[in-house]
Design a protein around this nucleic acid. Sequence first.
DNA 1: CCTACCGATCGGTAGG
DNA 2: CCTACCGATCGGTAGG
Lengths: 190, 190
Amino acid sequence: MKMRHKTEILTIAGELFSERGYHGTSMRELGRALDMKSASLYSHVKSKEELLWEIINHTANRFLEHARSVPVDISPEQQIASLSRGHLELIAQNLHYATVFFHEWKYLEAPLHDRIKAQSEEYEAFFYRAIEQGVQQGAFHITDIHLAVRFVLSSLNWTYQWFEPEGDLSLERLAEHYIALILNALTGEP
Amino acid sequence: MKMRHKTEILTIAGELFSERGYHGTSMRELGRALDMKSASLYSHVKSKEELLWEIINHTANRFLEHARSVPVDISPEQQIASLSRGHLELIAQNLHYATVFFHEWKYLEAPLHDRIKAQSEEYEAFFYRAIEQGVQQGAFHITDIHLAVRFVLSSLNWTYQWFEPEGDLSLERLAEHYIALILNALTGEP
DNA sequence: CCTACCGATCGGTAGG
DNA sequence: CCTACCGATCGGTAGG
């Protein structure tokens, strides 16, 4: 009859949702993983969707927090490097949450879905402005900044699909190589 | 009482699975979208998972077919360009199937899962060999080819998450810009 | 945190 | 392709 904290429930929910999907995980399975009855979960959350929302919203906030912490008075290259490194670290160090975030956010109901969408756009704007600065300063050679933002974020996001925290490839090495590839892509002559 | 073809069922299943997920779509919903009872679906397929398998296997085969059709006696740059263009075309022109492929393949049962995994590795090898050739010829400056393959495929794969076939951005323009960014990334000085 | 339970829905089958 | 139906499971509530 030991009491659970909400964060403990969210952690296990993140594991199960990332492995089997939100719709593929039942409250009974989650209860079983926590050694409690599914009915007891409802004293911590008011619905299954609340679990999904908390995982996704928490992750979105962490992405935004990091982006806001990147200085804007460093070079565009350094901004892109810092944004990219933070992005990869967040994914690699919170693989379950990141997987749920990327994989399941579209299953949130409309108002919540829209809030995440707005946060994503705010987040992308940090990449946009860094690349824009780089173009203005002549460091980057990009004719479609929006497309370049998509390209950079695509290469970073997909990491959740294959990265193994216990594998041979360290996060440091991954980040170093990816940042080099991204900066090459942005600076290359047209 | 009009008869349905299996491809028609698969097309609608692809739409529903891509929008609501495999676990989030019921056979009754699929039947409703096809104007038939869910029980009747079982004269076409033996299980819900067969629908998922056919969509994913068909998509995997099309990816492989294109990769095999790319000549190996053209320059590494041209090989990467052709592989990338084909990849983007396949996603953009089969957005529902591609979404199901990327999003739901992990929900296949182990033996089917393994077959798709093997096909994915075979597919990645085409990118690997093209980049390897480019490195040997001095055109690409890459120290970790596996990581470069991941990077390239990541940037391409994520397209299914945001591309709108009816939107302002044409497939041609997308492919042109992405190929330039990818080749920049691979050729850039270290 | 539990037991007991609700109506709804699930994938799938029998038999025509 | 249909009607009728199966046992299992779903998210969630009542009441303690």
